[in-house]
Amino acid sequence: MSIFSIHSIRPVLAVVGFAGALLAPPWLPMLIIVVLSLRFRALEAIAIGFFTDMLWQAGGLTDALPLYTIAAIIIVWGLEPLRLEFLR
């Protein structure tokens, strides 16, 4: 079995997602969230969304909605039936 299995890319994507939240344009962490959620039941996708909001959102819940966290939760949970149907 190749060491570069589909599961070995998961931590790499997670690291790119966190680093992207810090340094890259905002679409990159969102793309990583979507890609992770498509293939995995990715807890780290929610963490990336949460990290992005903690980093960039001005004020707390009272000022604005944490859009990246909400989007990550919706995407991870929304893709759950798809993962169950097609992936192991």
Binding site: L43, I46, F50, M54, G60, T69, W77
Partner: peptide, 18 residues
């Protein structure tokens, strides 16, 4: 596990605001 993380993150958001 996913549900636990989701609840945790929501809890952390509330904690951070408060």
């Amino acid at each position: 596990r996913l549900l636990a993380v989701t609840v945790l993150v929501v809890g952390l958001l509330v904690f951070d605001t408060l």
